[in-house]
Protein backbone atom coordinates (compact mmCIF):
# COMPACT_ATOMS: atom_id res chain seq x y z
CA UNK A 1 0.00 0.00 0.00
CA UNK A 2 1.46 3.37 -0.93
CA UNK A 3 2.14 5.74 1.94
CA UNK A 4 -0.22 8.32 0.47
CA UNK A 5 -3.23 5.99 0.56
CA UNK A 6 -2.59 5.12 4.19
CA UNK A 7 -2.24 8.76 5.17
CA UNK A 8 -5.44 9.64 3.34
CA UNK A 9 -7.27 6.74 4.99
CA UNK A 10 -5.94 7.69 8.41
CA UNK A 11 -7.04 11.32 8.27
CA UNK A 12 -10.14 10.49 6.27
CA UNK A 13 -11.28 8.25 9.09
CA UNK A 14 -10.79 10.99 11.69
CA UNK A 15 -12.66 13.51 9.54
CA UNK A 16 -15.48 11.03 8.97
CA UNK A 17 -15.65 10.47 12.73
CA UNK A 18 -16.21 14.18 13.33
CA UNK A 19 -18.66 14.40 10.45
CA UNK A 20 -20.66 11.71 12.22
CA UNK A 21 -20.54 13.66 15.48
CA UNK A 22 -21.72 16.85 13.83
CA UNK A 23 -24.48 15.05 11.93
CA UNK A 24 -25.77 13.63 15.20
CA UNK A 25 -25.58 17.09 16.77
CA UNK A 26 -27.50 18.45 13.77
CA UNK A 27 -30.30 15.93 14.24
CA UNK A 28 -30.44 16.66 17.96
CA UNK A 29 -30.34 20.40 17.46
CA UNK A 30 -33.46 20.32 15.36
CA UNK A 31 -35.09 18.34 18.14
CA UNK A 32 -33.98 20.85 20.73
CA UNK A 33 -35.35 23.76 18.73
CA UNK A 34 -38.66 22.01 18.27
CA UNK A 35 -38.89 21.57 22.03
CA UNK A 36 -37.83 25.12 22.84
CA UNK A 37 -40.27 26.72 20.43
CA UNK A 38 -43.25 24.83 21.76
CA UNK A 39 -42.09 25.75 25.25
CA UNK A 40 -42.25 29.42 24.40
CA UNK A 41 -45.66 29.19 22.78
CA UNK A 42 -47.33 27.92 25.92
CA UNK A 43 -46.86 29.58 29.26
CA UNK A 44 -44.37 27.86 31.53
CA UNK A 45 -46.29 26.84 34.62
CA UNK A 46 -43.35 27.06 36.97
CA UNK A 47 -42.70 30.74 36.34
CA UNK A 48 -46.35 31.50 36.87
CA UNK A 49 -46.40 29.63 40.13
CA UNK A 50 -43.21 31.26 41.35
CA UNK A 51 -44.17 34.91 40.94
CA UNK A 52 -47.65 35.98 41.82
CA UNK A 53 -47.23 39.19 39.86
CA UNK A 54 -47.16 37.29 36.61
CA UNK A 55 -50.07 35.15 37.66
CA UNK A 56 -52.22 38.17 38.44
CA UNK A 57 -51.61 39.78 35.07
CA UNK A 58 -53.35 37.36 32.74
CA UNK A 59 -56.15 37.08 35.27
CA UNK A 60 -56.76 40.81 35.11
CA UNK A 61 -56.66 41.02 31.34
CA UNK A 62 -58.91 38.05 30.77
CA UNK A 63 -61.40 38.67 33.57
CA UNK A 64 -64.90 37.85 32.54
CA UNK A 65 -63.86 35.21 30.02
CA UNK A 66 -64.92 31.67 30.64
CA UNK A 67 -62.44 29.15 31.98
CA UNK A 68 -61.59 26.40 29.53
CA UNK A 69 -58.65 24.74 31.17
CA UNK A 70 -57.47 23.57 34.54
CA UNK A 71 -53.69 23.74 34.78
CA UNK A 72 -51.49 22.24 37.47
CA UNK A 73 -48.80 24.83 38.16
CA UNK A 74 -46.92 23.29 41.08
CA UNK A 75 -46.43 19.87 42.60
CA UNK A 76 -45.66 16.52 41.04
CA UNK A 77 -48.14 16.87 38.22
CA UNK A 78 -46.94 20.37 37.28
CA UNK A 79 -47.56 20.94 33.61
CA UNK A 80 -50.67 18.79 33.40
CA UNK A 81 -53.76 20.43 32.05
CA UNK A 82 -57.32 19.32 31.79
CA UNK A 83 -59.75 20.71 29.28
CA UNK A 84 -62.86 21.74 31.17
CA UNK A 85 -66.24 20.55 30.00
CA UNK A 86 -69.54 20.62 31.78
CA UNK A 87 -68.88 17.83 34.22
CA UNK A 88 -67.40 18.40 37.64
CA UNK A 89 -63.75 17.70 38.34
CA UNK A 90 -62.85 15.73 41.43
CA UNK A 91 -59.40 16.03 42.91
CA UNK A 92 -57.77 13.63 45.34
CA UNK A 93 -55.59 10.60 45.81
CA UNK A 94 -58.38 8.15 45.02
CA UNK A 95 -57.85 6.37 41.70
CA UNK A 96 -61.28 7.33 40.40
CA UNK A 97 -60.73 11.08 40.79
CA UNK A 98 -60.56 13.15 37.62
CA UNK A 99 -57.21 14.51 38.74
CA UNK A 100 -55.31 11.94 40.76
CA UNK A 101 -52.66 13.73 42.80
CA UNK A 102 -49.96 11.75 44.54
CA UNK A 103 -49.41 14.34 47.22
CA UNK A 104 -48.75 13.26 50.79
CA UNK A 105 -50.85 16.15 52.05
CA UNK A 106 -53.90 15.42 49.95
CA UNK A 107 -56.86 13.33 51.05
CA UNK A 108 -58.38 10.53 48.99
CA UNK A 109 -61.34 12.72 48.05
CA UNK A 110 -59.97 16.16 48.62
CA UNK A 111 -61.94 18.74 46.68
CA UNK A 112 -64.04 19.20 43.62
CA UNK A 113 -64.62 21.87 40.99
CA UNK A 114 -68.21 22.35 39.91
CA UNK A 115 -69.42 24.54 37.02
CA UNK A 116 -72.54 26.64 37.55
CA UNK A 117 -73.69 29.05 34.84
CA UNK A 118 -70.24 29.31 33.33
CA UNK A 119 -68.59 29.98 36.68
CA UNK A 120 -66.49 27.33 38.37
CA UNK A 121 -66.85 26.75 42.10
CA UNK A 122 -64.34 24.97 44.29
CA UNK A 123 -65.64 22.93 47.17
CA UNK A 124 -63.67 21.13 49.87
CA UNK A 125 -64.87 17.57 50.44
CA UNK A 126 -63.87 17.41 54.09
CA UNK A 127 -60.16 16.99 53.49
CA UNK A 128 -57.68 16.65 56.34
CA UNK A 129 -55.35 19.45 55.35
CA UNK A 130 -57.83 21.77 53.68
CA UNK A 131 -58.10 23.48 50.32
CA UNK A 132 -56.93 27.04 49.83
CA UNK A 133 -58.02 29.55 47.24
CA UNK A 134 -54.98 31.77 47.02
CA UNK A 135 -54.46 32.35 50.79
CA UNK A 136 -57.97 31.83 52.07
CA UNK A 137 -59.19 28.47 53.29
CA UNK A 138 -62.17 27.17 51.33
CA UNK A 139 -65.12 26.43 53.62
CA UNK A 140 -68.12 26.33 51.29
CA UNK A 141 -68.52 26.43 47.51
CA UNK A 142 -66.39 29.38 46.43
CA UNK A 143 -66.24 30.92 42.95
CA UNK A 144 -62.81 30.56 41.37
CA UNK A 145 -61.56 33.51 39.31
CA UNK A 146 -59.18 32.86 36.41
CA UNK A 147 -55.52 32.60 37.31
CA UNK A 148 -55.97 32.39 41.07
CA UNK A 149 -54.17 29.38 42.50
CA UNK A 150 -56.10 26.66 44.29
CA UNK A 151 -53.69 25.01 46.71
CA UNK A 152 -53.98 21.40 47.79
CA UNK A 153 -51.00 20.20 49.78
CA UNK A 154 -47.98 20.96 47.62
CA UNK A 155 -50.05 21.07 44.45
CA UNK A 156 -51.31 24.29 42.90
CA UNK A 157 -54.05 24.48 40.28
CA UNK A 158 -55.29 27.36 38.20
CA UNK A 159 -58.14 28.00 35.83
CA UNK A 160 -57.08 29.34 32.46
CA UNK A 161 -59.18 30.72 29.62
Amino acid sequence: MPELVITVARFGFLILLWIFVFTVVGVIRRDLFAGARSGRLVAAPRAVGASTGQAAKPAKVKRGRAAHQLVVTAGQLAGTRITLGEAQITIGRAEDSTLVITDDYASARHARLVPRDGQWFVEDLGSTNGTYLDRAKVTGPTPVPLGVPIRIGRTSLELRP
Partner: peptide, 30 residues
Protein backbone atom coordinates in the same frame (compact mmCIF):
# COMPACT_ATOMS: atom_id res chain seq x y z
CA UNK B 1 -66.06 10.66 33.59
CA UNK B 2 -65.28 14.18 32.51
CA UNK B 3 -65.54 14.79 28.83
CA UNK B 4 -64.46 17.95 27.07
CA UNK B 5 -67.82 19.08 25.77
CA UNK B 6 -66.82 22.60 24.84
CA UNK B 7 -63.99 22.60 22.36
CA UNK B 8 -61.41 24.83 23.97
CA UNK B 9 -60.02 27.60 21.78
CA UNK B 10 -56.49 28.87 21.26
CA UNK B 11 -54.42 27.14 23.97
CA UNK B 12 -55.45 23.70 22.85
CA UNK B 13 -54.67 24.34 19.22
CA UNK B 14 -51.26 25.63 20.23
CA UNK B 15 -50.68 22.51 22.24
CA UNK B 16 -51.87 20.42 19.34
CA UNK B 17 -49.49 22.10 16.95
CA UNK B 18 -46.54 21.62 19.21
CA UNK B 19 -47.63 18.05 19.67
CA UNK B 20 -47.60 17.55 15.92
CA UNK B 21 -44.19 19.11 15.63
CA UNK B 22 -42.76 16.95 18.39
CA UNK B 23 -44.57 13.91 17.12
CA UNK B 24 -42.26 13.39 14.16
CA UNK B 25 -40.74 10.03 14.77
CA UNK B 26 -37.36 10.82 13.15
CA UNK B 27 -36.87 7.18 12.29
CA UNK B 28 -35.41 8.01 8.87
CA UNK B 29 -32.83 10.27 10.48
CA UNK B 30 -31.91 7.35 12.71
Amino acid sequence: MTVAATPAPSPVTTGGESGVRLARSRRNAE
